[in-house]
C-alpha cells in the first residue's frame, strides 16, 4: 500500500521569505506521525500545501494517492483537518459549526458527535464569538474526530486545551490509530508526541533535519554518564564521541554518543568503577538539540556536543 503522505523536495516562497526549502518526508498508512519544528519552521505551510490551499513552487506532494492541489475536493472528503488558529463564525453556535463542517465533508457520525461533546465537555449552544480559544479548538476537534475519514491533519490541536482535555485528546488519537487511521500531528507538546506518536519528522528552516521512529531518534542523543572511579582517571581525555568531560577527584561526568558508549565503558572498566549512573537522552534534550542553531548555519544534527 502506498504511503498516506509523501513529499519530495517541496519548495515554497512568500515574496523573498523562503518557507519551504526542499522538504522531503513520508507518513505511512496507519501510523501516528509527529510533525515537529520551531516556530516558523514551515509546519503550517506544509499542511496548507497538503490541503491544496497553497500551491508549492517546486517539488511534488502526494496525499492518499492523489495530488493535493488538483484533487483537493475529492481528497478532502477522505480527511479531516484542525487548523492551529480556529476562527468560528461569530453568530453560529458551536453545535451548528460542527454539523455544518461535518456535512460539508459528507456527513458525520451523530453518536460519536454526542460522545465527543461529552468527553470534551463542550456546550454546543454557545455562539462562536463567546467561546474561549480552548473551546474554539474543541469545536474544530470534535468536527474532525466525529467524521469517518482515513487521515487526520492536526495543526497544534491542543494548544489551548487544559491538561484534562489534553488527556481526552490523547485517548481519542489512540482510538483513531487502533481503528487504522493515519494521523499527522503537528505539536510542540513533547509529552503528547511521546505518548501518541510512533514516528516523528523534525523540520527547521523549511527542511527536514531528522525523520524516523522515536526509538531510533533516541540513539542519536547523548547519554549522560556519572562514574565514581576506583583508580586514577588516566587516559580518559581523548575518547571518541565524548563531550563535556569533567573530572573532580575520582568522579567523572561526561556525555557520550550512543555508538561510542561501549568504548567508554571498557576504558572505565580498566580504571575500575565503584558506582555508575547512566541517563539516556530525554526527548526534551533531543529536540532542543534539533531546534537550536536557529541561525541555520551550523550543521543540523543531534544535540549540542
Amino acid at each position: 500500500m502506498p504511503s498516506a503522505i509523501t513529499t519530495e523536495s517541496l519548495t515554497k516562497s512568500f515574496g523573498r521569505a523562503r518557507a519551504l526549502d526542499g522538504l522531503t518526508f513520508a507518513v505511512e498508512r496507519g501510523e501516528v506521525h509527529g510533525f515537529l519544528g520551531p516556530n516558523g519552521a514551515g509546519k503550517t505551510t506544509t499542511l496548507r500545501i497538503l490541503l491544496g490551499l497553497v500551491r508549492a513552487d517546486g517539488g511534488t506532494a502526494s496525499l492518499l494517492g492523489g495530488d493535493p492541489w488538483r484533487d483537493a475536493v475529492t481528497l478532502h472528503r477522505r480527511l479531516a483537518y484542525v487548523p492551529g488558529d480556529v476562527a468560528l463564525w461569530p453568530n453560529l453556535t458551536g453545535g451548528e459549526v460542527i454539523d455544518l463542517l461535518g456535512r460539508l465533508r459528507g456527513g458525520l457520525d451523530q453518536k460519536r458527535r454526542a460522545d465527543l461533546l461529552e468527553r470534551f465537555d463542550l456546550d454546543p449552544t454557545k455562539k462562536g464569538r463567546s467561546y474561549s480559544k480552548g473551546n474554539r479548538q474543541k469545536v474544530a476537534l470534535i468536527a474532525a474526530l466525529a467524521s469517518d475519514v482515513e487521515l487526520l491533519l492536526l495543526d497544534e490541536p491542543t494548544s489551548g486545551l487544559d491538561p484534562l482535555m489534553e488527556a481526552a485528546f490523547r485517548d481519542c488519537i489512540t482510538e483513531q490509530r487502533d481503528n487504522g487511521r493515519t494521523v499527522l500531528l503537528s505539536s510542540h507538546i513533547l509529552a503528547e508526541v511521546e505518548a501518541v506518536c510512533e514516528r516523528v519528522t523534525i523540520i527547521r528552516g523549511g527542511r527536514v533535519v531528522e525523520s524516523g521512529a522515536l526509538a531510533d531518534l533516541r540513539h542519536l542523543g547523548l547519554t549522560s554518564i556519572t562514574a565514581e572511579l576506583a583508580g586514577e582517571p588516566l587516559g580518559l581525555t581523548d575518547l571518541p564521541g565524548v563531550s563535556d568531560l569533567r573530572i573532580e577527584d575520582h568522579t567523572l561526568r561526561c556525555r557520550v554518543e550512543t555508538a561510542d558508549l561501549s568504548e567508554l565503558l571498557q576504558r572505565l572498566g580498566a580504571v575500575g568503577v565503584r558506582n555508575l549512573v547512566s541517563q539516556p537522552p530525554t526527548l526534551e534534550e533531543l529536540f532542543l538539540g534539533f531546534y537550536g542553531d536557529a541561525s541555520g548555519e551550523a550543521e543540523p544534527g543531534p544535540p549540542a556536543r
Binding site: 453556535t93 453545535g95 451548528e96 454539523d99 455544518l100 456535512r103 460539508l104 454557545k126 455562539k127 464569538r129
Partner: peptide, 19 residues
C-alpha cells in the same frame, strides 16, 4: 448579552450556499 442558540444545525444548513 449573548444568548444561547441551538445545539445542532438545522437540516438546511448543509452546503456552502446555506452557510
Amino acid at each position: 448579552p449573548d444568548r444561547s442558540g441551538p445545539a445542532g444545525a438545522c437540516r438546511s444548513l448543509r452546503s456552502p450556499l446555506a452557510l
